[in-house]
Design a protein around this nucleic acid. Structure first.
Lengths: 223, 223
DNA sequence: TATACAACATTTGCATACAAGATATAGATG
DNA sequence: CATCTATATCTTGTATGCAAATGTTGTATA
């Protein structure tokens, strides 16, 4: 049943690897290494890379090579701004449209986050946090919106990860989730939107943290 | 200077053709015909089509061929819902961030729309309307947002076109533009957002018009 | 006449060869 | 020692061949 093309397989694998930070932002993707690693020719590699480029995960610098997208601070701010808006829209719609089953699923995702936060497991939280947000996207009952939100979320994942390792970020994040969940459960779209926007937005000290992280990343990646 | 790859050239050409309705939604894209028409081999054609598929302009039905995307009513509603949100965000930001020069450009675009409406030139209006919206995207000073808005705008163009041919739609549209422009000029982000949202959103009778148009289109395309 | 099976055509995915453009490096010359 | 140039190498872009999967068509038989 899982009869997928090499191109698709490669694309998914690379995407996961990038999201999980196994290919660091700014790092070069060597086509020949990928050919050997995945036992295929240039064509699937090339196509997978093109598709990743389309979705913004990698950047192709003509005649220089393809690199994992390394967003500048300015580009990151732009994307977080849009992400906040999209998530806000998802939450607003979800508050109106979520089903009982979906609400249960969302609560479960929240509880999973709570367990990870309690255990101080940043990586585990990182994963469950993604599930929580994904559930909200889907509860918007706008498939296209959910898809776009997921795509942008994926691009931002490597940077979110850095945020989550910041001190006390887990507890704060969890508290914010709580507020979002409550608003959605009560069907209060306005509040759900406002809560998740402030959850996603990079503001105050977190902005400085982000700048610091990115700069460190760019130091590391440039050798 | 314009040293672009065949793939890119083909992609842009096809995209334009689809946006301008020269390839009708639901219509099949014959790879061999494209090879001959653009004097190239299968590879660039294949890659261009893949990229268009990624951006949602065409759909590949396995072993059947690739077809210009024909959105169902449900899919259209979803996309217009997102479009309204993105445009709303653009307008809100533009109200705060627009420069004097950009504001002049926006006024000019609006005047161009007015001339076309006065002349009853629906196609001309259709074009200038695109310029007007594009200027707002750019005035948001969020390049990523502008890019995403443009992309979605492009996908929806064929369907907007149908709307513009509706009776009195031009004048209504112009009046709504006026309201948006005023709000932006006054720096009133909230109002600008609200105005452009109601301008973009498909509501009331326009929803029925849209359904009718799409159904007619699907009749025509299926023979 | 309808159904099933087989041959055929189309489409897609993958590999590979070839060409062109750009960069880097090394050598030569000022 | 620096700079310019030429060559080599690396990367991307394009063409094309081949094979596999699937859809289609036609024919034969019940």
């Amino acid at each position: 049943m899982a009869k997928v093309s090499q191109t698709q397989r490669l694309r998914d694998l690379l995407e996961d690897a990038i999201i999980q930070g196994r290919y660091p932002p700014g790092g070069r993707l060597d086509p020949e290494a990928l050919e050997r690693e995945y036992q295929c020719s240039r064509t699937p590699v090339r196509e997978a890379i093109q598709q990743l480029a389309m979705s913004g995960m990698v950047r192709v610098v003509p005649k220089r090579g393809t690199f994992v997208t390394q967003l500048s601070v300015a580009e990151l701010v732009e994307r977080f701004e849009v992400m906040a808006e999209l998530e806000g829209m998802c939450a607003r719609l979800a508050a109106r449209r979520i089903t009982e089953d979906e609400l249960m699923g969302l609560r479960e995702a929240h509880e999973a986050c709570r367990r990870m936060a309690a255990a101080g497991d940043a990586n585990g939280y990182y994963y469950e946090n993604g599930v929580f947000h994904q559930r909200i996207y889907e509860a918007s009952h706008n498939h296209f919106l959910a898809q776009e939100a997921s795509r942008l979320h994926a691009v931002l994942q490597p940077y979110r990860r850095m945020q989550l390792h910041m001190r006390h970020r887990l507890e704060r994040s969890l508290t914010e989730h709580e507020a979002v969940l409550t608003a959605i459960a009560e069907g209060d779209g306005q509040r759900a939107e406002a809560e998740i926007k402030s959850h996603v937005q990079i503001q105050g000290e977190r902005f400085n943290d982000l700048v610091a992280s990115v700069q460190q990343l760019q130091q590391t990646g440039s050798d």
